[in-house]
Design a protein around this nucleic acid. Structure first.
Lengths: 227, 227
DNA sequence: AAACGTAATTATGAATTCATAATTCAAACT
DNA sequence: AGTTTGAATTATGAATTCATAATTACGTTT
């Protein structure tokens, strides 16, 4: 790292935004639950002011809901929100695919190729954890390869808002196999740097994931999705 | 309106987020300027706490930059940010076009048809103000017609972050004429509810607007764009 | 005169305090 | 018994206070 790098001491509220968002995304704070202001202040060892500042930010990001004079609750992810969010993520991924084909160098593609192989191996041994990891790495690499900060931040934000839901999607064997096929097709487009084609495949990949998720939800019949 | 509607009293910080964002978007607070905490507290008649909460939210939205122990400044819109933002807006509009064709009813299309006519009239008389207004109404109507809250809010946020810049774009007569043609083509697709086609045209329309803006900026040679 | 160092001032981040709204719980009443 | 009313408690929104970091002003030194 640079020797004269700016000293960076994140303010309390920044730190708290991170920590609280993690608590929510990692499901330590569950949707619908009240955010226990007092307890959190005590356990983090901070006063209410920075914690409340953090809550306002998280509210604007959509992770919590503020009710006047009634405190904050963790936002529930409704079916409607899911249906609104997936298409937007889908077009963001489409854009990422287009841009990544332009910007990724050989090394970058090689890295994705490696993760793709890891994903195939995980599928072969039906190792869900390894599969999810490799899968996420690939999408992440493509997003970052697009070299567009706005795209990256928006994608990250929307992705984390529906993070929990995505885990429920790849349940069925058929869907899993289909997803693998889709990834194979994506890799082909990436290898020849066909941005247009990769983008369309990524969009469709997301759309299919959404559809699969909806089927899974309908099967269990909950209109409300746990984060 | 419903007789038993919930009483809604926006909290101070919500109110302040709105007001401050307007001050920034409307250029009353200029990019790079310090946000004068004290003055604003005085003129709004509130204490520092809610104002600072509002600043944190605006920072997470990208309108201000917080410097530790050095207060907040209005975010500058850099050339890089512009280049990152336009492609994202473009794909959001693409999605809007696709969805709007599905969701808009005859009345909705008629309303856009009317605004389109108003836009043509404004172009004929070279009335820039009326043109901008009609143009914005059309895009707004298409976004809302998509009936996707996430899409709408993201589009609104990104749009307002580069609002100022967009005013600089339609300077040249050629670009203006080209934009009109693009809108004509868009209307054709909308009339036959060709979502795919409309989406692609809207994306290209944005891409062209971006290109025109860059040319305008290059001509005057500023790497930094006033909001 | 320029540069440096130090004190005074100011601005900022965060804790605390305060007023008020919401909730809880118990007693009174139907 | 169940419901309603009202005091007590608690939680929340916002103002104020406090400690510290940053800036400015000023004097000293070379």
């Amino acid at each position: 790292m640079s020797l004269t790098e700016r000293i960076r001491r994140p303010s309390l509220h920044e730190e708290l935004v991170e920590r609280l968002r993690n608590l929510i995304v990692e499901d330590a704070l569950k949707p619908g639950e009240k955010v226990p202001e007092k307890e959190l202040c005590a356990s983090f060892g901070v006063s209410r002011t920075p914690l409340r500042e953090a809550l306002k930010v998280l509210a604007s990001e959509g992770f919590v809901v503020l009710n006047a004079n009634r405190g904050a609750t963790v936002a529930k992810v409704t079916r409607e929100e899911l249906d609104s969010t997936f298409p937007v993520i889908a077009v963001l991924e489409q854009l990422a695919g287009e841009l990544a084909c332009h910007h990724l160098d050989a090394a970058g593609i090689a890295r994705i190729e490696e993760r793709h192989a890891a994903m195939l191996a995980a599928f072969a041994s039906r190792d869900r954890t390894a599969y999810f990891q490799a899968n996420q790495d690939i999408h992440q690499a493509l997003i970052q390869g697009a070299q567009n900060d706005v795209l990256e931040s928006q994608h990250k934000l929307l992705g984390s808002r529906i993070r929990r839901a995505r885990f429920l999607a790849n349940l069925s064997e058929e869907r899993w196999a289909q997803a693998i096929e889709e990834h194979e097709a994506m890799m082909e487009r990436l290898r020849v740097r066909d941005g247009e084609g990769l983008g369309q495949l990524m969009k469709r990949h997301m759309t299919n994931k959404h559809a699969a998720l909806l089927r899974a939800l309908d099967a269990e019949g909950g209109s409300e999705v746990a984060r």
